[in-house]
């Protein structure tokens, strides 16, 4: 139970039998990790049902939710495992992140220690989990350091790690903006960004409360997941080289899409 098996077995093709279509969706197992009360469950709730409310669901071990996410012509079906936060449940975590293709490690930007915990989770995932796991780092509760209500669409998030270095130049993004109530923020955006780049993680600052940045986590992960590779592996007839280049192409196209309109990608995901 404490060993994380390292395989892709939980990825498989699901065929939409109701419509009888050949619309193939890829199932992606995603796990949320992070210190207690950083907002993991809230992030999931925002993503799955686009709402924010006090968490009513008592979670023992991990809560399990699913959500589809359309990306290009493909549908991803996220199987989300939202783990319980208490430190003593830590030894149970491998049970949930085993076989996961993606992980969202959440910290609270108003609590410095939560980033330390997040780093330790990242280390653990990189050593113990599926070697190809896509990890996203999410600094949550962004709304607490923003002076006024910001429209969710206005602030686009950083790009995938390749472009992370110049993410600060992304239009519409104003990290550490003037008027930010500096007292509350304990983790500078730059610091977390630098760490994420170094560790090879996707990075976002989010607010489950306003919805900012939430969908982006999941779309960016979707782009980074080597879907073609998985599909090929599942079919057993894939040409790895071709699959790789195809995935790269998809990522770029997605990037363009996002810049066009962040709100659009939100709709796409709440299918």
């Amino acid at each position: 139970m404490l060993n994380a098996a390292q395989s892709f077995t939980s990825v498989r093709l699901a065929t939409d039998s109701a419509s009888g279509s050949v619309d193939k969706s890829v199932q992606v197992k995603l796990v949320l990790l992070g210190e207690a009360a950083v907002g993991k469950s809230s992030v999931v709730l925002r993503f799955v049902s686009n709402e924010f409310q006090a968490n009513k669901e008592p979670t023992i071990g991990a809560a399990f939710l699913t959500q589809k996410c359309r990306l290009e012509d493909r549908v991803l079906r996220y199987e989300i495992w939202d783990t319980a936060g208490q430190e003593r449940f830590h030894s149970l975590a491998p049970m949930y992140y085993r076989n996961a293709q993606a992980a969202v490690v959440v910290y609270d930007i108003t609590k410095a220690s939560s980033l330390e915990k997040a780093k330790s989770w990242v280390k653990e995932l990189q050593r113990q989990a599926n070697p190809n796991i896509v990890i996203a780092l999410a600094g949550n509760k962004l709304d607490l350091v923003q002076p006024s209500v910001s429209s969710p669409g206005a602030a686009s998030t950083s790009e995938s790690e390749d472009e992370a270095d110049d993410a600060t130049a992304t239009p519409g993004e104003t990290p550490g903006a003037l008027g930010e109530p500096a007292s509350l923020r304990q983790v500078p955006r730059e610091e977390a960004q630098a760490y994420a780049t170094e560790a090879g993680l996707l990075f976002f600052e989010t607010s489950a409360k306003t919805g900012e940045g939430i969908v982006d986590i999941f779309t960016e992960i979707a782009k980074k997941i080597p879907i073609e590779h998985i599909l090929a592996a599942t079919r057993g007839t894939g040409r790895p080289g071709a699959a790789g280049s195809r995935a790269d192409g998809a990522r770029q196209e997605g990037g363009v899409n996002l810049e066009e309109n962040a709100a659009k990608s939100r709709d796409a995901c709440n299918c």
Binding site: M1, A5, S7, T9, S10, P58, I60, G61, A62, F64, L92, M95, Y96, R98, N99
Partner: peptide, 20 residues
């Protein structure tokens, strides 16, 4: 065979005496 872990379901059964 399908690599399913019993505990993902049974852990809360025992931890919360099925109440949850």
């Amino acid at each position: 065979v399908v690599d399913v872990q019993l505990s993902v379901a049974s852990l809360p059964w025992f931890l919360s005496l099925y109440i949850n």
